[in-house]
Every structure is written in C-alpha cells, then in structure tokens.
C-alpha cells in the first residue's frame, strides 16, 4: 500500500500522505463514536466518506488547489449534514451563456463538469480543465488506497 509509485506524477500527493490522514481520521472517528455500536450505520458511512474526501484534499496540499480549498471549506460548513461533495447545482447565468461562442454542446458538458469538481462553479474553463485533471488523479489515488485498506482488512 505504502510503496511509492515511481511513475506517478510528482504533482499528485503520495498515497502514504493520504493514507496517513485518512487513518488518523478513522482513528479519531473510532474514538468519538465506537465502531462496535450497531446503530447509526449510515451516519458512520457518511463520516468515513467525508474523512476520505477531506484527507484527499489535505494530502493535495489543502489550500494550494482551488478544488481542495473548496472541498475543505464545504466540509467545514456542512459538518453535520449529509456529505455529498459532488452534487452542487450551478446555474449558468444567461449572461455567461451569451458570452460563450463555443459550440453549445461543449459548454453544456463543461457546465456538467463544473458541478462535479469542487469549486468548479467559479472556475474559468482553462482553470477547470487543469483542476479537473488534478482532481481525477487524486480521486483515483484515493480509491486505490481505500481499496487496499478494504482488501487488507477483509477476512482471508
């Protein structure tokens, strides 16, 4: 799990950094809310999910990226609400729509992407692409580490 992937772009946080943050959050979660109580299953799942996204943003350098900054800010805000980082509706203002002369299908697809990338709503298209690329890399790293954890903890 912690083996450094030499091929990985230096721009992307190391898996160990994410794993470190994530395990620490899980450990804190466990102390606050012991995992052996059978109730509150969904609450726990939500907390774990949130811990994963927040750890990813921290591993990505916290506020050095627009998406990680947006993600952390939102995580702070809706601390006890259902966490769904990817579902923020963003309405295209008519002014913005008019000012775009690119093919409408492209703009539509870009708008959909804005809803999926944290903080994407306020991004210039070029910035959106850059942040999306980084976000995807981090997200797949996160999935890989979580999968490793699940595999490691699953009864053989």
């Amino acid at each position: 799990m912690a083996s450094a992937d030499k091929l990985i772009n230096t721009d992307v946080p190391e898996k160990d950094v994410f794993a470190f943050h994530f395990l620490q959050s899980l450990s804190n979660l466990r102390k606050q809310n012991p995992f052996d109580t059978p109730d509150q299953k969904n609450y726990r799942v939500r907390k774990i999910k949130k811990a994963a996204y927040v750890s990813m943003a921290r591993a990505a350098g916290g506020s050095s990226r627009l998406w990680s900054r947006a993600l952390l800010r939102r995580a702070d805000k809706d601390d006890n609400k259902i966490v769904r980082f990817s579902r923020r509706k963003w309405k295209i203002s008519s002014k913005r729509r008019r000012s775009n002369q690119r093919a409408p299908v492209v703009e539509e697809a870009a708008e959909r992407l804005r809803n999926l990338v944290p903080g994407g709503g306020g991004m210039e298209t070029s910035k959106l692409m850059e942040e999306t690329a980084h976000y995807i890399k981090c997200l797949s790293m996160q999935v890989k580490v979580m999968q490793c954890l699940v595999d490691g903890l699953s009864p053989k």
């Binding site: 899980l26 999910k49 994963a52 996204y53 980082f85 995807i136 996160q142 999935v143």
Partner: peptide
Amino acid sequence: IRNLNREVDNLSERLSQLLE
C-alpha cells in the same frame, strides 16, 4: 468522476462494515 465517486461510496460502506 461519477464512477470514482461511486467507488468511494461503496468502499466507505465496506470499510464501515469491516471496522464494525
């Protein structure tokens, strides 16, 4: 991205089950 988000959902659930 949606697929990755879904994977995080599933893995969070699995982790929660495993830890419990």
